[in-house]
Design a binder for these strands. Structure first.
Lengths: 225, 225
DNA sequence: CTCGACAAAATTGTCAACAAACAGCGTTCG
DNA sequence: CGAACGCTGTTTGTTGACAATTTTGTCGAG
């Protein structure tokens, strides 16, 4: 029972981050009601601050708010997760192509090293480490691309689908599938091959979509043996 | 000096819409400061309501807010407008492809009629009418696609770039260029040709990007003859 | 026993006031 | 004469309380 982090300064920005973390980390489960007064107590902030935070998180797609009925943690269905991945497929391929055009020599070295670390993580069975490297890679590609608009959108979408992403990373055999896809993206970017990078990113996200559907089907069948 | 629309109920939702309209319609120019107290008076709402509205509009990308320094209308540079159009290129092509797969017979008729109306508007020199039909077409394609995630992102991006879009629509000869591109999108969707629709949408947005750059270059050269 | 209306509790929406931070300007010191 | 300092006015950030709305629990009639 983590009595939750009620410390830190109660600044507006901090409360947003705190609630977001609580949702992303799974402390607040989907469809859980988020009562302003309760959160006000939990995070040691005034109700107005909490309210502002909830509005911000609503536009980030993490919470749902309906008139006079309060806010609750938004539950993203499999269908929505697939939609999000489809959008990611388009935008990550755009960013990968841009990154391939703009990548510097230093960044090439960085990406190659990242690929090596991912390889080691998979070989060593370090699933959570690999998951972290995975996110880091995607973020670095976004940054290198210089496409701030796409990067912002992708960042928001990541928050919404983090639960599904995590569930996916935990499936046995998944890292072995995604590693070569990631390597392909890295290689294409480092070779300044924009078309190849876009294609590799598309292929990777396509694989994610298939895996999402497969994972869901597997879990459903597991619920009724 | 339109003393601005201060009527209507002061509901939270209404204030957001009112301020958004004021920005999109150009009543509030880019970089204009948005003082909470002033808006509170203009829209007959409390400062807290205005504040909530500004937070919401910040996440929509229409206003910029800095700590302890207030909010101002966000000015999107040409560079940003191009970035936005690049993202739109990817997402609109996705929606066009999905729409081609899912379009019903009734919707085919609707789209064809829309194309006819656009043709008439261009032939009659009705620029603003054509601009409206343009937006309507893009929106209908998004709706038909059933891709709610992409549609939401596109809707937000449209708000940010509406000023550039409008400037573009006003350039002489632009409608004659964009009309066949729009027709190509319509035809591909109506023929259930997903790949063709995606390609047509990509081509259209590519044309928009080129036109944006050209329009900017022309205006710059016009400022120093 | 179920359905509907009524009342009470809980929760959100709104408001006015207070405190903190920043910007501009005049004063004073080097 | 120039620059640093402090002051004042304005604007945002925050708080607490009040009003409106929804939900929940209860009672009575059919």
């Amino acid at each position: 029972m983590t009595e939750s982090a009620a410390d830190g300064q109660p600044g507006e920005r901090s409360v947003v981050a705190a609630i977001r973390d609580a949702i992303v980390r799974g402390e607040f489960v989907p469809n859980q009601r988020l009562v302003e007064a309760d959160l006000s107590g939990q995070f040691a902030a005034s109700r107005a601050t909490v309210r502002a935070a909830l509005i911000e998180l609503t536009n980030e797609g993490l919470v749902e708010r309906v008139q006079n009925r309060g806010a609750r943690v938004r539950a993203v269905s499999l269908e929505e997760a697939v939609e999000i991945s489809e959008v990611r497929m388009m935008l990550e391929s755009l960013c990968a192509a841009k990154a391939a055009e703009r990548v510097s020599d230093a960044e090439v070295g960085e990406l190659k090293e990242l690929g090596e670390l991912m390889h080691q993580a998979v070989a060593g069975g370090d699933v959570v480490g690999y998951s972290g490297l995975n996110q880091l890679l995607h973020r670095r590609v976004r940054e290198i691309s210089g496409q701030r608009t796409a990067a912002q959108v992708l960042e928001r979408l990541r928050g919404q689908s983090v639960r599904h992403q995590f569930r996916l990373a935990m499936r046995p055999g998944r890292p072995q599938v995604s590693l070569p896809e990631h390597v392909a993206i890295i290689d294409a970017i480092c070779a300044h091959d924009a078309d190849g990078a876009a294609a590799a990113a598309r292929a990777h996200l396509g694989s994610v979509i298939e895996a999402l559907k497969a994972a869901d089907a597997a879990e459903v069948s597991h619920l009724r043996p």
